[in-house]
């Protein structure tokens, strides 16, 4: 069932050999889409902000963890002093209620956590997915059966629920952002593995791979030199769609209080804290919510753009007939290698 959807999200799982057209035409096709271009610029800016967060806060003269008791009105329950949540030349976006920590600093350091966790988790998912998918496609029948069943089970596990539960049993001394990265990465690699397996089976039957095998190349060398380049397009496409999902999951876990914990700032965690302050300090809620929205939106649009650029036909070909899917699944030349 999910194979149909997976295939729909993965261009190039057919017989077309992606990557053959090269990086140059990919950029040309990506640039041709105005929305994707804008999204790419926004994402680039966000990454830049995350990278130079210490510089930005140094420019402002603040840091994300120092309390400023003088800037909050303890008589009124900890509301920031001054208008607009205490916005001033010293605190560009005001300060947090109750603690007086600088909001701008927490926001830009939060970008580091959001993007860092999401990108690192995507890398973990891609590495595991490629390894399992290629091993499944190139291994013996039993290896394929075993790995495919394991993948099915992994796909059946709800990501939010499993990560929520897993985060409960790890001691709190473990660095939290690393932990969240690992948990997301280790649970949600199933779809990538499925895509990679299907694509590898297709590639395996193509002439240039057969030629390499007939020349006496080993499985490992074929996998590295002949198959990996052909896997790039579907993997990049699906990875681009995974990043915004990972961002949302990290934010959700932190929102529930089991993800990234204070004093390390995270947008999801800021939203939990801001919940009760929306009347007294609305900007405390608006900034992290806006940051999250813009980031996920930009990454989603960029992901769509990457998909279209890598396989222009994919946009209209959302459904892959089940018969064809099965055909690709039981692939040609099965067991001829190894």
């Amino acid at each position: 069932m999910s194979e149909a959807l997976v295939a729909s999200q993965a261009p190039g799982t057919d017989t077309s050999v992606p990557g053959a057209s090269g990086a140059h035409s990919f950029w040309r096709r990506l640039r041709a889409q105005r929305a994707a271009l804008v999204a790419a610029v926004v994402v680039a800016l966000l990454v830049l902000v995350a990278l130079v967060a210490p510089l930005l806060t140094a420019l402002e003269g603040q840091d994300p963890t120092t309390y400023h008791p003088s800037l909050i009105d303890s008589a009124r329950g900890g509301v920031p002093v001054g208008s607009f949540g205490g916005m001033s030349a010293h605190h560009w976006l005001g300060v947090e209620p109750q603690t007086g920590r600088d909001l701008f600093a927490r926001l830009v350091y939060g970008a580091r956590v959001s993007l860092g966790v999401a990108l690192a988790a995507t890398v973990v998912q891609v590495v595991i997915g490629i390894t399992i998918g290629v091993a499944s496609a190139l291994g013996s029948r039993w290896v394929d059966q075993l790995l495919s069943r394991v993948t099915d089970i992994i796909v059946a596990m709800p990501l939010m629920i499993m990560s929520l539960a897993l985060l409960a049993i790890v001691p709190s001394s473990f660095p939290r952002p690393v932990l969240v990265t690992l948990v997301i990465g280790l649970i949600a690699w199933g779809n990538i593995a499925k895509i990679v397996r299907a694509q590898t089976l297709t590639l395996k039957g193509l002439d240039y791979v057969s030629a390499a095998r007939l020349s006496g190349w080993g499985t490992w060398r074929i996998a590295r030199r002949e198959l990996l380049p052909g896997l790039a397009a579907p993997v990049i496409t699906y990875a681009a769609l995974l990043v915004p999902i990972n961002i949302s999951v990290e934010a959700a876990l932190s929102f529930l209080g089991v993800g990234v914990k204070p004093p390390t700032p995270s947008w999801g965690q800021m939203l939990t804290a801001a919940d009760v302050w929306y009347q007294a300090a609305p900007q405390y809620l608006l900034f992290p919510a806006g940051a999250l929205f813009v980031t996920v939106l930009a990454l989603t649009v960029l992901g769509d753009g990457v998909r279209t650029a890598l396989d222009p036909r994919a946009a209209s070909r959302l459904r892959v007939g089940a018969g064809r899917r099965r055909g690709a699944g039981s692939g040609p030349g099965k067991g001829a290698d190894a």
């Binding site: 069932m1 999910s2 149909a4 959807l5 729909s8 059946a156 596990m157 709800p158 990501l159 939010m160 629920i161 929520l164 959700a252 929102f255 529930l256 959302l318 459904r319």
Partner: peptide, 23 residues
Amino acid sequence: APVIALNANNFGSAVGGAVLTET
């Protein structure tokens, strides 16, 4: 048909969303 397929596939993520909504 693909819509039905997605509905089941999305059930897991919807349950995750339900956790957030309930909280």
